[in-house]
Design a protein around this nucleic acid. Sequence first.
DNA 1: GCAAAAGTGTTTCAGCTACACCCATGG
DNA 2: CCATGGGTGTAGCTGAAACACTTTTGC
Lengths: 250, 250
Amino acid sequence: MAEFELANTINFLDHISLDCVIFGFHENDLKVLVLHYKSTKEYALPGGFMRFDESLEDAAKRVLQQRTGLDNIFLKQFKVFSDLERAKTNPAVQDLVAAGLDIDTAFFDKRFISVGFYALVEYTKVNPMPDELSDTCEWVSLSSSLKLMLDHNMIVEKALDVLRQQLNTQPIGYNLLPEKFTMPELQKLYETILGKKLDRRNFQRKILSYNILNKLEERRTGGAYKSPFLYEFNLENYQKALNNGLNSGW
Amino acid sequence: MAEFELANTINFLDHISLDCVIFGFHENDLKVLVLHYKSTKEYALPGGFMRFDESLEDAAKRVLQQRTGLDNIFLKQFKVFSDLERAKTNPAVQDLVAAGLDIDTAFFDKRFISVGFYALVEYTKVNPMPDELSDTCEWVSLSSSLKLMLDHNMIVEKALDVLRQQLNTQPIGYNLLPEKFTMPELQKLYETILGKKLDRRNFQRKILSYNILNKLEERRTGGAYKSPFLYEFNLENYQKALNNGLNSGW
DNA sequence: GCAAAAGTGTTTCAGCTACACCCATGG
DNA sequence: CCATGGGTGTAGCTGAAACACTTTTGC
């Protein structure tokens, strides 16, 4: 299926690509899905091209489905990357051709502008799948400082930046955490995205004051130390609260 | 110059266009620059295409320079519009051809995705100039509800939405107002963008508390009633304050 | 002198910050 | 029993909201 698509690049719009920064949260760590290209040392974000019969969002959904196995992923476009610098021929393409892959080099050699999407997924539900040009698809911690192809490191940086800015207006917690989660887990997520420590008690009071969480009877047992309570999002209240922004200025 | 460019659409990337929502503020009213196409009843946002030797931002600057006469305009891309709906052939193209304009219809008939930019300009400095397909280039009040071509009304709506969201993180006041302005003018700008009334005294206290304004000795004379003081932005402090956001949540 | 807009200050209340003690759990 | 993390409460401060009177100006 994917092979068929790539071999028939004539189905895609020229000059336009998309790259997905797929965020997952696991063991108190924010991670991103990254591909390793066959026969090269290059790592890259999952990406793709746009068909004539779909929107950019549809194309991104298609890519996300293929790399994670999931439908109905939360995703947002956040920036178009069009600097002349990025127009350079992708060095990985030559390596891939040398390795014998059937690639339409005339297509890949064109100048591309790329639309950046970020996606939020529940880590445990993802089944990472490489595409036809890569041999692995793996989670990489944001703190790993792995060097990515072309301007992909910048794309990740920018995505994280946007995530930070949209923390109060998009259902970010809801889409990154499993259905049931503990208060410390939610706090760690906020701290990771914001890049700073928060006071436990003040965080809890503030987030509870929004009335966007349901406290459950259950606790998370099995871990060490005192068992924390589980919470779930009250989606209706969450959405309402996000409409105004969780902290309204002016 | 512009004619030359359009006649040689071969210089542009296929499938990609850009549209600019150019905001100006005049007489306590937020306005947008709009073109009227020759020999049609269609109104449209100023837009253009992307050359192979420039980035999207460069292309947008080129369009802005041509429509306003200004360089160094503050602009931001805010969204790519790629719905299949908008792929329909632009109805204005047929009218323009019928009216005898030299248009590369094969180029225009392709499917386009359009990158939306918003730009902020100082109203009085703008010299609106139509492009080769239009006969007028005029300011239109946001409250006028003029029907625009294709999805351009939606693009304006979205731009205003983004403007609202970025009021605390981008130098919006600085770029829309003249160098010297009064407190009531600044407040009206905020009220217009936010779509709600603010308390005079609280607004003044809050905005002054950021230390982003210099109060001048001068007053605005000549108007009726009590002469208000003039202010200017303290650009250094403004930029610093915006980095954290004027109202920091979390 | 009157109508309309601009300058200015205080009180109140809510929300944020800072901070400390007890409890549960696994080892 | 101890180390570690989780649950919970309070006092003080800061910033936001609500609100009224005086001054200037043109007519």
